[in-house]
Design a binder for these strands. Sequence first.
DNA 1: ATGAAAGCGCTAACAG
DNA 2: CTGTTAGCGCTTTCAT
Lengths: 326, 326
Amino acid sequence: MTSFDVAKRAGVSQSTVARVFARPALVAEATRNRVSRAARELGYVPSAIAGGMRNQRSGLVGVVVPAQGEYWQSVISAFARQVGEGSRQLLVTTFRDVQAVEGAIQSISRYRLDGLVLASSTIGVGQISRLTQPNHAVVAFNQPAAAGIAPLVTVDNQGGAAALARHLIELGVKSAAFVGGVSSASTDQLRYRGAVEQFGAREISLPYIEAGSFTYDAGYKIGANLAEVGRIPDALVVAADEIAFGVIDGLRRHGVSVPGDVRVTGFDGVPQSAWEGYGLTTLVQPIEQMVASVLQLLSLSAVDQIVTIEGELRIANTTRGETSHG
Amino acid sequence: MTSFDVAKRAGVSQSTVARVFARPALVAEATRNRVSRAARELGYVPSAIAGGMRNQRSGLVGVVVPAQGEYWQSVISAFARQVGEGSRQLLVTTFRDVQAVEGAIQSISRYRLDGLVLASSTIGVGQISRLTQPNHAVVAFNQPAAAGIAPLVTVDNQGGAAALARHLIELGVKSAAFVGGVSSASTDQLRYRGAVEQFGAREISLPYIEAGSFTYDAGYKIGANLAEVGRIPDALVVAADEIAFGVIDGLRRHGVSVPGDVRVTGFDGVPQSAWEGYGLTTLVQPIEQMVASVLQLLSLSAVDQIVTIEGELRIANTTRGETSHG
DNA sequence: ATGAAAGCGCTAACAG
DNA sequence: CTGTTAGCGCTTTCAT
């Protein structure tokens, strides 16, 4: 089905058919109706491939995100929703290893994307700079290390962690530890920094414990370990909700009460954190708002643009009640 | 950057450049290296848009899925992973209302997809048939109602629910109820049927309770309601994990013990069901395998193809222990 | 083994 | 308001 088929059926030229779909106002109503009907009868829909070729705009927005994790799935959802609201479409590429990102970008770039969103704090800075190419607009998502190399939209990691830490301090916490995902991730570093500054100001040290990945299982091991060793601080500041769920279950499995024996906080605000089963105190990322910012930045092209969005402290069961010291 | 630019730099014709990328074996090694180097220096990547136009194959696979729900997010992830492993790309379109599906399909069809996957049991049969068009291959995912209209890949809903029911019966359950999501959904109906047959064979009636949506909140209300009314059966067979989490929290909030007072089962096997915080007995859908089947069916084109995949009964905390009758 | 040339379906400038 | 025309960048015969 091409516009020629429709043209023949409607008894007009091909370009009139094209106009009916691209700029209907330029076509007389009678003609327009005739063409529309012919198109409907033939089941014709203009080809975005051909149009994209002609226009040098594919109408495609790509996102490159980690293959796993509740948080990233929410991010994909948000992009799908918001990109779909325009007349554009979303190309999703996931990757397991950071090494695979390079290849993923290459194959996705073949589609001459109108915009490319790079997510994941574990993508290296070198990779980002190699990708800030003329053709497509690139925006980094939650990847503080990209600052200055590509336009960036990120939640306020440091400020968010600081808010969580202050909340714990107000609760009377006298000792704490930080459970990170991957220490080389820039989000991890900023969250740690945000927390350590607050605790430091109260002369409370904040050891860094690395889970190894941003997963439930990694968190579970940390929780179980802490419980077995037995030296449990008053609070655990965990770098991500998903790790925190694991930490909590690992602790509880070994008889440690949360929040009774130890208060736990997360980061991200994934849907389950609000479920009563965990009721996790966390820093909620306003994902929809962040995604909206990304889509705006895509139209601009200022490399040094940085949009930092404040998250929202959401207090729940895992930090309820006073500490024994309190 | 076009193949002409590369050709000029490498001192060959444009068609040689194209060959190097499309069918490298047909080009002498020396030439090939020269071209590859030129391409790399210029940062040239062949345009899939132009290629798709010429070949009438976009290399794009589209999925249309509901905008929300843990389960669907896992499905998107699986598609992204598996489609990406080929040299194809994934176009994701989400929708909130079933009414929006029609429009979503239209705009996605403009990309001349090599394959289109329709997911969600709430898409109407009429819509599906209107979409089984010549151009692109359509496969229905977990949408039993599509049987005969489009090739279909689905988990064995009825068999899975039956397995859950038998498990509960073996536990000595004497009364039960079914909590569905949306009664018009074909998956809901089959799951109910699978359970009701098993209970019926033991002379146990199985009232159907409709939550109204496949969400945690809808489940929570049901759970809270049941607890308040106080007539709690020995077991609740819930149509989806996410609803089940809500049911459990709603019950527990009002002092009802799970599995002490009532055993609860889910369906889907989303990641959190395996987390100890809930430890939900459920029917695990082998999503990766189902997605693989879909991608295979896309190449074929037998409308009456139906692939039914067995799920796996995973027993966990929410059905542990004997009933008081047992 | 390489080059020349046609054409995929569309848009937009231009002519009428 | 509508028709004619020239490409967009690539793949693929068909020659050489």
